[in-house]
Computed example of a mutant assay.
Amino acid sequence: MDDVRHHIPVRPARFIDQLRHHIRSVGLSYRTEQTYVYWVKHFIYFHNKQHPKDLGARHIEAFLNHLAINRHCAVATQKVALNALNALTYLYRRFSD
């Protein structure tokens, strides 16, 4: 069922649903949505389920260092994660109200 989009409420309360809603509203592909949600969830879990509004640049750097050093991820995987986190950085501005 990986090819069926998740249902999200009209006015989503959960951060991940807000992220999905934003991705859909700007017309990004479903594959992009899946990738971004995957990496954002990993980022949140890496930081003990802290809300992204409480995390900043140093947290992003720590996460990327973890991928590169501790998990020995391939360069391509690191680039995908960086792209997802760049999108998350953009979303911080949108959701920081």
Score class of each variant (00 low, 15 high):
residue 7 H to A: 07
residue 7 H to D: 08
residue 7 H to Y: 09
residue 10 V to D: 12
residue 12 P to L: 01
residue 13 A to P: 03
residue 14 R to V: 02
residue 14 R to E: 14
residue 19 L to W: 00
residue 20 R to Y: 00
residue 21 H to R: 13
residue 21 H to A: 14
residue 23 I to S: 04
residue 24 R to C: 02
residue 24 R to A: 11
residue 25 S to G: 01
residue 25 S to A: 10
residue 25 S to P: 00
residue 25 S to Q: 08
residue 26 V to T: 09
residue 27 G to Y: 15
residue 27 G to M: 09
residue 27 G to L: 09
residue 30 Y to I: 00
residue 30 Y to H: 14
residue 30 Y to V: 00
residue 31 R to D: 12
residue 31 R to G: 05
residue 35 T to P: 03
residue 36 Y to C: 09
residue 37 V to G: 02
residue 37 V to L: 08
residue 38 Y to S: 05
residue 38 Y to D: 11
residue 38 Y to T: 06
residue 39 W to G: 06
residue 40 V to P: 00
residue 41 K to H: 07
residue 41 K to M: 10
residue 41 K to G: 01
residue 43 F to N: 10
residue 45 Y to F: 13
residue 46 F to S: 03
residue 47 H to I: 12
residue 49 K to V: 01
residue 50 Q to L: 05
residue 50 Q to C: 05
residue 51 H to N: 15
residue 52 P to L: 05
residue 53 K to Y: 05
residue 54 D to C: 01
residue 56 G to Y: 10
residue 57 A to F: 11
residue 58 R to I: 13
residue 60 I to V: 15
residue 60 I to M: 10
residue 60 I to T: 14
residue 61 E to C: 03
residue 61 E to G: 02
residue 64 L to T: 12
residue 64 L to I: 13
residue 65 N to P: 01
residue 68 A to N: 10
residue 69 I to S: 03
residue 71 R to L: 11
residue 77 T to G: 06
residue 79 K to C: 06
residue 79 K to R: 15
residue 80 V to Y: 13
